[in-house]
């Protein structure tokens, strides 16, 4: 099953993940997985993988790796300076890399997390059907310099001999810029009385205690007007809570699945991807939307990804035709 090896030269803060462990929550394990789900899906789509295939999540720091076979990769998410053997290559597009060439992601900016998908993906261990790391269970984790990942598939390179000009430019949908986070009313909004509207009055500052479990932020805090201990119950990803202390807590995909705090509001699926790209020290605003608007947005996002998938398929079949045509220019 293993066709080659990806060797990490500089690991930064990189882990292998996927879209998450859907079977986890009923066993008390968070769904986890790529925090920016949309960018992860796009990366896999760009290399022709199923969206749920394992890929690399690169947080803030530079990554450098080399593969011992020819591969097709795509980098998405936060802006990164992508080079192959020192030559700049585009992010958000499929990029051919020859065996032995060094791929680097540097200067990640405009966001916090970049994603690297490789056509055919990696052979990695799974727990409850997912390779997503779980720091509590001690499953998976960060890669180190020298770590190796088994590659499932080689992909013959596609290159343009004319000054290496790009052969295609796929129109990849981008995340909305600016940190506006859409929320719908939470199930326990009444516990906060009139103070719930404070959530929308001023920007919040994201603090360094933020991670994949949740983002902590300072700003005007709504106040819980009820008291008493609540029985533990399932808490949705995206739950906005006001725990004791002076910070607002927004739970992300690494959240514990049960909790006893009242839920003031819930971040929409699309805005969870926005939160995945917010850095500590940045400010964001919450915007109240209806559940119907949130669902419409989710459907529109799905349509965009479907359209991208069919564009990628067209490009791949066109390139195959060029590469195989007897009179055509060789692309190899």
């Amino acid at each position: 099953m293993t066709a080659g090896i990806l060797r990490v030269l500089e690991a930064g803060s990189t882990q292998v993940t996927d879209l998450g462990r859907r079977r986890g929550p009923r066993f008390g394990v968070p769904v986890g997985g790529a925090l920016d789900q949309r960018s992860a899906r796009v990366a896999n789509i760009l290399v022709g993988n199923a969206e749920s295939e394992p890929l690399l999540e690169v947080t803030a720091l530079d990554l450098e790796f080399v593969c011992d076979i020819d591969v097709l990769i795509a980098v998405t998410g936060a802006d990164a300076h992508v080079t192959v053997d020192g030559v700049g290559r585009p992010a958000g597009q499929p990029v051919s890399v020859r065996a032995g060439q060094t791929v680097a992601l540097r200067e990640i900016q405009g966001g916090l997390r970049a994603y690297v998908a490789v056509r055919g993906s990696f052979e990695v261990p799974r727990l409850l059907g997912s390779c997503a790391p779980d720091s509590v269970l001690g499953f998976g984790g960060r890669l180190d310099a020298g770590s190796t990942l088994p590659l499932r598939q080689a992909t013959a390179p596609v290159f343009n001999d004319h000054f290496s000009a790009e052969l295609y430019s796929l129109d990849v949908p981008r995340l909305p810029s600016g940190f506006v986070v859409d929320v719908t009313d939470g199930p326990d909004i009444d516990d906060f009385g009139d103070t719930s509207s404070r959530l929308f009055e001023q920007p919040y500052l994201v603090t360094p205690k933020s991670n994949h479990i949740g983002l902590r932020m300072t700003g005007p805090l709504p106040e819980r007007l009820t008291a008493g201990e609540v029985l533990s119950r399932g808490v949705p990803v995206g739950a906005v809570e006001v725990p004791p202390g002076d910070e607002l807590l927004v739970l992300h995909r690494g959240r514990g699945v049960t909790a006893g705090y009242p839920v003031l509001a819930v971040v929409t699926a699309g805005s969870l991807d926005v939160l995945a790209q917010v850095r500590p020290g940045q400010r964001l605003r919450f915007r109240r939307v209806s559940a119907a608007d949130a669902a419409a947005r989710a459907r529109a996002d799905l349509v965009e990804l479907d359209a991208l998938r069919s564009r990628v398929r067209s490009v791949f079949s066109a390139l195959d035709a060029l590469a195989n045509a007897t009179t055509g220019r060789t692309l190899l």
Partner: peptide, 18 residues
């Protein structure tokens, strides 16, 4: 349906709104 989290007296059913 993405997943179901049953607890004591309640279950949370997570969905894909699309």
């Amino acid at each position: 349906v993405v997943c179901v989290i049953p607890t004591y007296d309640a279950a949370l059913v997570e969905i894909d709104p699309a």
